[in-house]
Amino acid sequence: MQRVNMIMAESPGLITICLLGYLLSAECTVFLDHENANKILNRPKRYNSGKLEEFVQGNLERECMEEKCSFEEAREVFENTERTTEFWKQYVDGDQCESNPCLNGGSCKDDINSYECWCPFGFEGKNCELDVTCNIKNGRCEQFCKNSADNKVVCSCTEGYRLAENQKSCEPAVPFPCGRVSVSQTSKLTRAETVFPDVDYVNSTEAETILDNITQSTQSFNDFTRVVGGEDAKPGQFPWQVVLNGKVDAFCGGSIVNEKWIVTAAHCVETGVKITVVAGEHNIEETEHTEQKRNVIRIIPHHNYNAAINKYNHDIALLELDEPLVLNSYVTPICIADKEYTNIFLKFGSGYVSGWGRVFHKGRSALVLQYLRVPLVDRATCLRSTKFTIYNNMFCAGFHEGGRDSCQGDSGGPHVTEVEGTSFLTGIISWGEECAMKGKYGIYTKVSRYVNWIKEKTKLT
């Protein structure tokens, strides 16, 4: 034993070699072989497995989906700052455009905790909710729209109204504003409101030439003092309507412009014939205590009207009353817009006519005020429907199939267009061939041609 100890002390290297040989010859039971080890760690190889990531292109799944990435790591994937920024906006807080917040056709661009709407022409605001041009839906104005110097929408209202708090709607500024039905039992019968379409306001006024200088022999019209197929109006439903009495009662109609003036057809009036105007009328054979009678003290036909040349060209006249009318729910003026808007309103496509005229061709006159909704007829169809001249200051309205029309005794009465609950004068009943005849239409004086003249002559002093 002493000898062994001496050998170990003198030859430590020998001992180490012996131990190493023993270990190498022993069977290893701690580690699995290569094949079995792979069965336990069965993990798919990654895209760049075996390579240094710093030297390969980034992978979106590896960089940002398996674990949260930084902007720089995302930049490695896209290799483009702009594309990385677009991805980053949604990656950080989701897609803010998912709810489609942009209105009126706006395009949404996502941002971090926010979004941006790219608005089409005519709109602005956070969600493109603000109209900035009158060309689109009248700028959301209830009545009139004008573009300011910086191309912003400025709404306005006709006389007797003021802008509401929203700067879009119009509200009454006087007790009985024009064009409004205020009798409670008839307010439910107000005709369907007309909503502004998209309009090209630059070209809204037709490029028409008034044929002022045409000389033409007097034409022989049949029954051209021209509501057939209409309905009984309720008291106060058309408070701007008046009836004219002269040699015979209810020979023509008219509309209240203001307390002192009536507008009617020029062919209705004769110099030297006494005319009485009755406002607030409903049943011409009954006294309903809503009527107001006034005498006409002055007749002003349009300066281009000449019955000797043509009885229905420039067929418009103004009547001055001896005493002002007292405005109330049964006696209310009709609204008159400017030339541009009167023309736009007419193009809405349908209007209402009213009167006490004959209820059928050569038949009896109506006792109760009649009204009828009539569609506008395109000019080409209008011209083809008659052998008589249709001037540019006239328009056609009615039904091709016949059966409904204005008729004798309705002449001078109103053709009105309702705009968001307020009625505007767009025409004056003038003439036609018979009444409600198939293929024939009622012919009306186009008020847009005469609004400046009306307003100039009827100013209240």
Rank of each mutant, 00 (worst) to 15 (best):
E165N: 12
C28T: 09
T461Q: 13
S448Q: 05
V263T: 03
P101S: 03
C178E: 01
N304V: 03
G106P: 01
T426L: 01
S448F: 02
C335S: 01
A337S: 03
N135S: 11
H289I: 08
N213A: 06
A397S: 04
E67W: 04
E10S: 14
N48Y: 13
L319H: 01
V419L: 07
S49N: 14
P324D: 04
D33T: 10
N48E: 15
F424N: 01
P324E: 06
F221R: 12
G125M: 00
F345A: 04
T381R: 11
R294G: 02
E54A: 09
S114E: 11
E66C: 03
L376K: 05
T276K: 07
Y115V: 03
C18D: 02
P177K: 00
V183F: 12
I443F: 06
K274G: 11
G179F: 01
V353T: 09
N343W: 03
L367C: 08
L376D: 01
E193M: 14
F71N: 15
E61R: 08
Y91A: 15
T389C: 07
D33Y: 04
R46L: 10
W356H: 07
S169M: 08
P12H: 10
T186N: 12
E281T: 14
E116T: 03
R404Q: 06
S114R: 06
N295Q: 13
Q241Y: 11
N213F: 06
E98F: 10
C28Q: 04
V277F: 01
N5G: 15
R294C: 00
K347E: 10
V92N: 08
I256M: 03
K247A: 13
C18T: 07
A250I: 07
R191K: 10
V296D: 01
Y444M: 05
E73L: 07
G179S: 02
G236C: 03
E98G: 09
E231Y: 04
A37P: 15
F348P: 02
Y201D: 10
P197I: 06
L460D: 12
N104T: 00
L383A: 15
I309D: 07
A266Q: 02
F196D: 12
A149E: 14
E124T: 04
V183R: 09
N245C: 04
Y201C: 07
I284Y: 08
Q241W: 07
G272T: 12
G94A: 12
T190W: 12
W88E: 15
N304L: 15
T342F: 00
Q185V: 14
G179L: 00
S156K: 08
C69Q: 04
L163I: 07
F87P: 15
Y201W: 09
N213H: 07
S220E: 11
I299F: 07
G442P: 04
